[in-house]
Design a protein around this nucleic acid. Structure first.
Lengths: 174, 174
DNA sequence: ACATTGTTGTAGCACTTGCTACAAGCGCCG
DNA sequence: CGGCGCTTGTAGCAAGTGCTACAACAATGT
């Protein structure tokens, strides 16, 4: 087998590459080069390309959770305030890559990839729960769902150059 | 050159294939088979794969506009009513394929494909205007933006199996 | 010292990708 | 009829895809 540290190190570099270039540019040889090894070895470590991608995405999700904890507000906030705050965070250059791959995962899932669908849902549910914890609301479930829907909508629209529409919808100027 | 009718007929079949199988499964040879011709001929008709995809997506967008006109309400509706109506329409099996490729276009755009970004924005702006025309509102621009953000959010979330969250956010039961 | 086991490099396979060279067929005008 | 240009089929290329066979190496325990 392989040592856990080495595996974690490789996963880290693989995650970097996927976050920087997207899933569609993540075939075995580029990934191997990014991780400082060979495609041959990647398959030795992860058996399958599917398994590899699954692990890398889990790794990326874990990183995202950590990044989100750093972005958490000190106390719960009402929906509209949280919306503008998080909407700004999501377009932050440190955070945008996560949204890009999240979007790519969703697209793959919509096209029938069951693995991507499963991972996407896991990430999404985590995000939803995290949002609910940030919310000050009498109806936390409903508001968390609204938060989530709106935020993913802005991710979608910003991807096609309609960030202005997001700003209009949220009533923000910057 | 090629006759306009023949071109339109081929575009139709290409659009069918893209709507059914997605952009990622739309390489030249499958597309050619779907259109009843050869990859050689597709490149003869469209010069480039990029140009081909661009034309097919425009064609798909035009079809979507027609489909949306059929789904228009007889008179303007307030935001919340329109939201539940359209949200249901978007998951309709006749409409969902358009949302799937729209999502794929957005994902490609987010990953740096300028052509997809341009086409995605064109489609999105058309959708936004159409929504505004359906709205009964004192602040049509704001409400149209909110409509759009929310709808695309539901498309995103449904792709990863979180349709329940969409229902919670919109307060619908079915 | 030796055999066994785990790790790695080299080379390659079978396939798909977008695209092209070449030539054969086609109709059309002189 | 002859030539000319538009259309189309055959075949193929160079690059990239996931994956594998095979052998060499290193480590390790007996």
């Amino acid at each position: 087998m392989i040592s856990d540290e080495k595996r974690a190190l490789i996963l880290d570099k693989l995650a970097d590459h996927v976050l920087a270039h997207g899933l569609s540019a993540s075939s075995l040889r580029p990934l191997a080069k990014a991780a400082g090894t060979s495609d041959r070895m990647l398959l030795y470590y992860f058996t399958d390309k599917g398994a590899l991608i699954a692990e890398v995405l889990q790794h990326i999700a874990a990183r995202m959770v950590i990044a989100m904890e750093g972005a958490a507000a000190p106390q719960p906030l009402p929906l509209d305030v949280l919306l503008t705050r998080l909407s700004a965070s999501l377009s932050d250059p440190g955070f945008a890559p996560y949204m890009r791959v999240f979007l790519e995962v969703a697209s793959g899932a919509a096209n029938g990839d069951a693995t991507l669908a499963r991972i996407g849902e896991t990430i999404g549910r985590g995000f939803l729960d995290w949002g609910k914890a940030q919310l000050k609301s009498d109806t936390p479930d409903i508001d968390a769902a609204r938060l989530m829907v709106t935020l993913e909508g802005t991710v979608f629209l910003r991807a096609i150059g309609m960030g202005d529409v997001c700003r209009t919808a949220l009533g923000t100027t910057e």
